[in-house]
Design a protein around this nucleic acid. Structure first.
Lengths: 129, 129
DNA sequence: CTATAATTGCAAACCATTCGCAATAGTCGT
DNA sequence: ACGACTATTGCGAATGGTTTGCAATTATAG
């Protein structure tokens, strides 16, 4: 049983097919995935989009996945697969960046995760303006 | 004319009442505001929520305001009023944090802004679980 | 193997955000 | 200050991601 499934179990939650499938899917994809993408990836089994949302929400609450949102659509990834992106404010294209952030844990908080969203203007957009 | 209004003008955009009002409202509020909140704050004048959204989008594109999203509702603040938050994954309460991030500008990008969203489990939620 | 409560699938509701379009109002040149 | 030109607005309606209620299903404890 994967470490992730174990954590679900430890939280007193059941190991259902849907949950296993969502976790497996995220393990196979490093880049953050939207709920819709995950759902599409599970189209072999009879799984509802709503259940995907519920599962992702559970996993986020447990700290197993992180949720990154560009304002409209949220994307989820295993908290392990951690890196960042810079989004061009012109063309909205994403570029991956390694995580270079080292922060002290804020007072009183535990299990701290972070999400960094960088925006800027990419070279080609800077030219065309 | 405020520095912000000047930047709108320099971008070749008109200084309308709605834009002045939105900027003024954000100047008066340090904490990130949702489009709905801004709109409510402008209820003296006949302003439409859609225009608030259009104005905020413009200001974001110009780099005057930053947009921070928790996945459902986006919040906007003047890029000046910059700090971060840590959100408890249990109770969802926010706590402000000073910005301690110093990053080199990623290759090829200019006018880089960042947004950091920290999540964790606050002391009282850690107890009750 | 059974009982029990957690989860799911489905469909409908929600709500933030966006879009089309005619009316309005900044700006620039005169 | 005036008029023309076009960006911007207000309004209403559409969109689309996300959530919810509920009956049927299914994982788990005993």
């Amino acid at each position: 049983m994967s470490e992730y499934l174990a954590r679900v179990r430890q939280a007193g939650c059941r190991l259902t097919k849907a949950r296993r499938a969502v976790i497996a899917y995220l393990q196979a994809h490093d880049e953050p995935q939207t709920a819709a993408t995950v759902h599409r990836g599970l189209r072999g089994m009879r799984t509802d989009l709503a259940s995907v949302y519920r599962t992702l929400e559970l996993l986020e609450r447990l700290g197993v996945v992180s949720r990154e949102s560009d304002g409209k659509t949220a994307a989820y990834a295993l908290a392990d697969h951690h890196h960042h992106h810079i989004v061009c404010r012109g063309c909205h294209r994403k570029t991956c960046l390694p995580c270079a952030l080292r922060l002290p844990s804020p007072r009183g908080f535990s299990a701290v995760q972070h999400q960094v969203v960088l925006t800027g203007v990419c070279a080609s957009c800077a030219q065309s303006s």
